[in-house]
Design a protein around this nucleic acid. Sequence first.
DNA 1: ATGGCTTGAGTGTCAAGA
Length: 258
Amino acid sequence: MKIATWNVNSLKVRLPHLLDWLAANPVDALCLQETKTEDKGFPFAELSAAGYHAVHNGQKTYNGVAILSRSTPQDVRFDIPGFADEQKRVIAATVDGVRIVCAYMPNGQAVGSDKYDYKLRWLAALNTSLREELQRWPRLALLGDYNIAPEDRDVHDPVAWKDQILCSEPERAAFREFVGLGLADAYRLFDQAPKSYSWWDYRQMGFRLNRGLRIDHILLSAPLASVCRACVIDKAPRKLERPSDHAPVVAELDLPAA
DNA sequence: ATGGCTTGAGTGTCAAGA
């Protein structure tokens, strides 16, 4: 079974890239972030033709998350239980017996801003909700755009980014709190090339100069981490014309797919 | 350089991303 996450930065713009990528990478579940559309603009028909079910927590202009899957998604849940939030950032579903939680975590804009406070409250609320989710579904994967670079090795210029948004210590502590739930960073279960990132700024030739951050992650509960065989960042779509600024991340699990 | 690109909204430019 293969599971993946990709912040597409507008599904309408990126649909051709998405369909091409799915054809070349037939994963069993794909989490999307920043669909930036409501259901009426969501390409259910095109994805169905490509062999994928889709569940979507949509929002116009900003945010919006979806789970695509080959098998029928079950027990679909939206948002964070008990956390009042107008922003559509979470959708969860069970696919082939694996609980898939798709999250577009807040950016936070700047350390100390109102949005930063919201980010930290949001991260704490998600953590609380995952505690219960794990009780019910021990085989759980938390995939998405975390908007957190967990360590300095996930940052192209750790000195310039020190204590900045995406890299601040409270954000990194929140990431470690997810790990503290018993989740493992799938990417770090394996040897990886240094300077591996999942996002590059559109400006200043960020991708060509590999000025990036690793902020898109797949965290796996212990029963899944123990059967994880590989985790890769696929930079190919980032090289296309009009790319998303994020690359997909894929984890391969030694589990039967439907 | 509260900048640079990109998107969506909407037809002016601005908010937001990371």
